[in-house]
Amino acid sequence: MLDPIILAQILWTGIATSSPYVLLTAGFALTLKVTGLWNFAQAGLMAIAFYTMFFSLNVLAWPVPVAIGVALVLTGAVALAMEVWGLQVLRARKSGNLTFFIFTLILSEFVIYVITLVFGTEPQTLFKSILSPVAIIGNIAVSDWDKLAVVTAAAGLAALWLFMTRTREGQFLVAVSDNAKLAELYGISAQRAYRVVAVVAALFIVAAMYLVGSHGGIVPNSPMELVLTAVIATLLGGIGRVFAAAAAAVVLALIQSFSILVIASRWQNLLLYGFLFAAILLFPRGVRLPRLRLAMRR
């Protein structure tokens, strides 16, 4: 049962599977950190990103790089438009949190309904076949998709880290997230920071949706569930800690993967929400590392 090879296989597959979630969580948590907004509209962006690629590849038969490029442009543009004509207006009006919640959630729902109308509710994948060539590396099955997913997530996080710590633009984001008013006094435009974040998040979303869409079927409503996973990881990682949230996404996926060994698969989703409950009721400020270790030992 506890064959080390099986464990290693589960570990690897778990990490690979978590990769798109890591990207989505990073984009979501970054948005939350800088703008203070639980941006549920990212579900809408996810839907736009996926269906743009789907349409480009399967209907227009464009090559993959072009499809990704078009998705990047379109998703980025919608993200910017939402920022400028939506969020900015509400901020100027000093809207309450509930208003932002309604706006972002309803916008997502709107996008999803429109897409349902156009594409229907059948599950769709980016490519005809989602089987990915598998190589055996040291007794562990590693598919091309696995490699692509892990490399993309790692590169995305590394790029984000470099951006946040090494570039002026990235440091401006940190300054705005710490104290928008103070940052403005130093001549850093919060609005500019919000736009930058919108675009960065859109990049992460396109990358993640490419991975998700080349691995399994997507229905118009899937992005809602994806964004909720990001919410859970962000809650567990602690609000305002982007990389901890991304790490929480990995940990969640691993716990779900390893749980196959001990509990029936139908309880797996429940496990995710069990963690959510615990996070909400017991650790509202996020699970700090010592506690997490404690929780895992049990």
């Binding site: 309604i102 706006f103 309803i106 916008l107 729902e109 709107f110 999803i112 309904y113 429109v114 349902t116 109308l117």
Partner: peptide, 12 residues
Amino acid sequence: PMQGIIFTLLVL
């Protein structure tokens, strides 16, 4: 979806 679009548009 039409009903959904009408609702969400109304809200927005």
